[in-house]
């Protein structure tokens, strides 16, 4: 009961102050602007709570969708702003000497597979490859053997094509778009369901850059 009066006092104070400034600030007066952008490396989030949240995000996206592509597109859209924002945040956290904007496709993808991946999943991506098909020089593949987001997702029988890592694809797409490399990123399941498969959840993120980006890359490479 002792704490009750203080709670009331806070509750009465906050709206009064907020209305006078037209802006509501926390009771201690500290906003996000008072807090540092760097955080200690050991600070991690609970995977259980993330899995719970992500499960809800998938079922939210699943409402009123007509097909699997539509669902994946919605998941992609949820991830897109995260990629945009992480790009700036992670560049800021880089040591000052390597605080460089990625200027070519390789630098950008390396930033994504190392810095971004380590930030999100605490390990780098498993592979980064360029498409060997000469007809599609604009395609790159990022491989993750065991996407963290899919760990507690079981895909129902009739929806084999669905890969909820489309959310991660959205994050990658956001980072590419933000850096000025417009791209379409899609997630594809590559693990076979056979017995003894080492990585049943293996996922490939196909990054397809827009033609003008490839053209610019060639032009910049020459000069």
């Amino acid at each position: 009961m002792a704490s009750q009066p203080t709670k009331w006092a806070l509750g009465n104070q906050a709206p009064a102050r907020g209305s006078s400034q037209g802006l509501r600030t926390p009771a201690n007066g500290k906003t996000i602007y008072n807090r540092p952008l760097n955080r200690s490396r050991t600070q991690e989030l609970s995977q259980a709570s993330f899995a719970y949240l992500f499960g809800e995000m998938v079922s939210y996206a699943q409402r009123r969708v007509t097909d699997i592509q539509d669902l994946e597109k919605r998941l992609n859209n949820q991830g897109h702003p995260i990629g945009l924002k992480l790009l700036d945040l992670l560049l800021y956290r880089e040591p000052p000497r390597s605080q460089l904007r990625p200027l070519n496709i390789i630098a950008l993808l390396q930033f994504i597979t190392t810095v971004l991946w380590k930030h999100l999943f605490a390990r780098p991506a498993d592979a980064l490859e360029k498409s060997s098909n000469p007809e599609t020089p604009d395609e790159y593949m990022i491989t993750d053997n065991e996407p963290l987001v899919n760990q507690y997702i079981s895909v129902p029988k009739g929806m084999d094509q669905l890969n909820c890592a489309a959310f991660v694809a959205g994050v990658i797409e956001g980072a590419c778009d933000g850096a000025g490399f417009a791209a379409r990123v899609t997630a594809h399941s590559m693990g076979t369901k056979t017995e003894g498969e080492l990585w049943p959840g293996k996922t490939i993120f196909l990054v397809k850059f827009q033609p003008e980006i490839v053209e610019r890359e060639q032009f910049l490479g020459k000069s």
Binding site: Q21, G22, L23, T31, I32, Y33, R35, L37, P81, L84, K85, D88, L89, Y92, G178
Partner: peptide
């Protein structure tokens, strides 16, 4: 960066925060 970290901030939105 702190301003755009807001989940309500979308790309190319005007920065209105008085702080």
């Amino acid at each position: 960066i702190k301003a755009i970290m807001s989940p309500f901030y979308h790309v190319n939105m005007e920065a209105r925060s008085p702080i």
